[in-house]
């Protein structure tokens, strides 16, 4: 692929690649607490039905997933597993942090055993606020992420530069 090595990608090819990536996201659900149930409702229930957005829930393993949704309270005991799971995912990978707890500690901001935000461990792309966020809010978060993926420059990723999304 001379194109890749040269570090350039024609616009149409970029948008083709991005469009196909954006509508075929495998989402790995890492349910941690209360928010997990709302995530379950968003992903598994007939009323919200995430598949219409081109997102496929329940991959067999994080190694097959493009997107991981951390929903719920991250405790210090859980942190090593989260990091390990994130490292197992293949690039390009995205992270949604769902709920106040995963965003910043939420109601447990002063607890001795809660990590104040999953972004201390892994980089987060989309924060979904709420305690718990409604399933619709998670769906909106996914749509935002898709917009973001659509604007990505694949060539930058291949060159190994940090991605700047406008």
């Amino acid at each position: 692929m001379g194109l890749v090595e040269s570090g350039k990608l024609p616009k149409p090819l970029t948008s083709l690649l991005n469009t196909s990536r954006k509508y075929s996201i495998w989402i790995f659900q890492w349910g941690l607490a209360c928010c997990a149930i709302e995530m379950g409702a968003a992903l598994g229930s007939p009323r919200y039905d995430v598949m219409r957005l081109g997102v496929i829930p329940l991959p067999a393993s994080p190694r097959q997933a493009d997107l991981v949704c951390f929903s719920g309270t991250v405790t210090d005991k859980m942190v090593p597993s989260i990091r390990r799971l994130y490292d197992q995912m293949p690039d390009p990978k995205y992270v949604i942090s769902m709920g106040s707890c995963a965003n910043c500690g939420g109601p447990y901001w002063d607890s001795y055993s809660v990590t104040k935000g999953v972004d201390q461990i892994v980089p987060v792309d989309v924060y979904v606020p709420g305690c718990p966020p409604r399933p619709e809010a998670l769906l909106e978060g996914i749509v935002l992420l898709q917009e973001r993926i659509g604007k990505e420059d694949m060539a930058e990723r291949w060159r190994g530069e940090p991605i700047v999304v406008s």
Partner: peptide, 13 residues
Amino acid sequence: GYMHRGYEKLTEV
């Protein structure tokens, strides 16, 4: 303990 959030301590404050 993966979900221990320290309720009993937090209620005290």
